[in-house]
Amino acid sequence: MSELATERQIDRSKMHVGSDVAIQINNMNKWYGAFHVLRDINLTVNEGERIVVAGPSGSGKSTLIRCINRLEEHQQGDIIVDGTELTSDLKNIDKVRREVGMCFQHFNLFPHLTILENCTLAPIWVRKTPRKEAEEIAMHFLEKVKIPEQADKYPGQLSGGQQQRVAIARSLCMKPRIMLFDEPTSALDPEMIKEVLDTMIELAEEGMTMICVTHEMGFARQVANRVIFMDQGQIVEQNEPEEFFNNPKSDRTKLFLSQILGH
């Protein structure tokens, strides 16, 4: 798993980190009942950053990124996404969700709608895009993820890798400025992981701000500009990929890396 399962050259020309802040998290804490799941999280993500979040299972990675689009509510601290603070105000939540796309481990496509309908639903109902235009946008992104010919099928008729690419296209149809990925390849067979990673790399090459929870360390090495390591609800270490992999500081990180890289 240490090598990225792709041979393509990665074009870094547009992958530069801007100076605008995309996401700002200050002293954030979250509890599930009495369980302190996220502890004093501080994180600033600039426009154009590609961040990989790694860490053992149960360390709070999913919870962290789900707080960013308010699928989970935090109890303390601030989360500011694209200048909008996440509070219980529904207007702010709506605004943030329009700017933030998300892909899930289990794709979560809508099984009763065709691929095309999956992609046009939110543009039509949330952004009020005319149907025709929404369909054009959807076909554009389906071509981008290389499955335009599946547009009229239902999700149940596609392979896992294809479904995940549709899920990415569905998010992109909302023209988000930030994309969140929660283990997008963990439910896939090895030969399908590559096609999904290729899609994600293309997104990165276009300068998308991305936060990816993933165990694909090859992807982290080659695409990320920063790797965050979490354990027990805390950010334990963060660094540039080179340093992070070659020269981890914390013992927990070393242990985790030795396990995941399988020495």
Binding site: R70, V100, G101, M102, F104, H106, F110, S171, M174
Partner: peptide, 26 residues
Amino acid sequence: PRGQYEAADALGLDYWKAQRLIIMPQ
């Protein structure tokens, strides 16, 4: 599955739209 609600939320559909377009049909 919970994922259907989450996907609808993540796409920015409000409660009633999510119910009408995603949840109830299924």
